[in-house]
Amino acid sequence: MKGLTPIVKKIAQLMCGMIFIYGIYIVVHGHLTPGGAFAGGIILAGAFILLILAFGSEVIKLRKEESGSSVSESLSLLVTLILASTGLLIGSKVFFKNFLPPGQIGQLVSAGAIPLYNILIGIEVAAAIITIFLALIIFKEEEEQR
């Protein structure tokens, strides 16, 4: 896939980092402010989509990125399940037990395990959306080569 004009590339370079940091902010502050794993994950995916659309890439590199994103998607879901079943192992006999101390309301480190779930599912959502997008682009490129 070819990239766009230099103006678009420069603007995308400048904007991408800010969008990425905003997405990380939304994910990490999910238990304090509006947002959370689902919103922040899609914003993170949006930063990647902006870069891919602006700069373009070759099919081989896109393949590599796709395998990476699908591996991180599966891994984060697996770690979520392990974290959820930790409550069973600790002895409370409840799946999805919030076993960490809740802390003080309004602090960044509070709410027990909820920020961890937020971060993990944020990675999962971002990776899933990137995987879908990359699959569509790779399909288009391969059809054009044929």
């Binding site: 238990h31 304090l32 509006p34 959370g36 101390p101 809740p102 309301i105 709410a111 909820i114």
Partner: peptide
């Protein structure tokens, strides 16, 4: 109970 200020996330 949950310690989360955002009730939706809780």
């Amino acid at each position: 109970q949950t310690g989360a200020a955002n009730l939706v996330t809780g």
